[in-house]
Simulated assay, not measured.
Amino acid sequence: MKVGIFGANGRMGRVLIEALQEHEQAQLTVATVRDDSPWVGMNVGELAGIGSLPIKCTAVSEINPTQVDVMIDFTLPAAFDSNLAWCVSHNIPVVIGTTGLSDEQLSSLKNAATQIPVVFAANYSVGVNVMLSLVKQAARALGETADIEILEAHHRYKQDAPSGTAVAIGNAIADELGRNLKECAVYGREGKEPPRDQKTIGFATVRGGDIVGEHTALFADIGERLEITHKASSRLTFGRGAVHAAKWLHGKKAALYGMDNVIGLKLQD
């Protein structure tokens, strides 16, 4: 299977190059960068720090659609619209890991999935997707009495806060409890406030150093608390998951899929 990467020079782009290089059934055939990028023409293996490979970085406007079966996009919201439009116009399936998308962009993604196969997930780790199932079970059992907080930590360069994974955890819990996350979420606290509203879902964000990604869903009741935590120690975990998703997506019919579909995990209803 021939796989292309949008934003090969990004943090996750370089990880995806490595993940594809080690995969036995997927081959990296296209690695794009911005048209004005100094990385145009650079060897992708040297870019990723894994030695020379027989592929060079291509300007995004020069992608040859005949060279790819599936694209992977872990870029930024600013590049999302054009990347998605390219995939739709050339009927190329796409795996999307870009976070921080606007409501309008999420709507565009859903519309695109009526024309091409799309996998969209806030996190491509198998462990995180198991965590989404577990927090729904915890919410069902504890959510009506426990105070719920979501804690997340990432490296200093991460731009969106809270993380897409933290929001996905919040949405999983809110949906289980019949709440609207946009109405019940609390993003940080400061100064004197009234007693905590038990119906809210709080978020706490840490940005520092080279933290790959840590997420905890905290259910705190009187006399006990439950913490469900996932910690990633390598971005290669996400890269391998995305490549697995790309392989799974190849040949699927047009629809919007999640990692629960990819790994065969049925989240609790």
Rank of each mutant, 00 (worst) to 15 (best):
V118P: 04
V119D: 00
F120P: 11
F120C: 07
A122L: 07
A122M: 09
A122N: 09
A122G: 15
Y124P: 09
S125C: 07
V126F: 15
V126H: 13
G127S: 06
G127R: 01
N129R: 10
N129C: 14
V130N: 01
M131V: 07
L132V: 07
L132W: 04
L132D: 03
L132Y: 02
L132T: 07
S133H: 14
S133L: 10
L134D: 10
L134M: 09
L134T: 06
K136F: 09
Q137G: 06
A138R: 00
A138G: 02
A139D: 05
A139N: 05
A139V: 06
A141E: 15
L142H: 15
E144K: 13
E144N: 14
E144Q: 15
E144R: 10
T145L: 06
A146I: 00
A146G: 03
D147C: 13
D147F: 14
L151P: 00
E152H: 00
E152C: 11
E152M: 05
A153N: 06
A153S: 14
H154S: 13
R156E: 01
Y157P: 01
Y157A: 12
K158M: 10
Q159E: 13
Q159C: 06
D160H: 04
A161S: 12
A161D: 08
A161P: 05
A161V: 15
A161K: 09
S163M: 08
T165E: 04
V167M: 13
V167Y: 10
A168N: 03
A168H: 02
I169T: 14
G170E: 03
G170Y: 00
N171F: 04
A172R: 02
I173V: 11
A174C: 10
A174R: 11
E176V: 04
E176N: 07
R179T: 01
R179N: 09
N180K: 05
N180L: 05
L181E: 11
K182G: 14
C184N: 00
C184Q: 01
A185Q: 09
V186W: 02
V186Q: 08
Y187L: 10
G188V: 11
G188E: 08
G188W: 11
G191C: 10
G191N: 12
E193N: 14
E193Y: 13
P194M: 15
P194Y: 13
R196L: 08
K199P: 00
K199E: 04
T200V: 12
T200S: 12
I201G: 10
I201Y: 13
I201K: 06
G202T: 10
F203A: 06
F203G: 05
F203P: 06
F203I: 07
A204H: 04
T205N: 03
V206F: 14
R207F: 12
R207V: 14
G208N: 08
G208I: 06
G209C: 04
D210A: 15
D210H: 08
I211L: 14
I211D: 13
V212F: 07
E214Q: 08
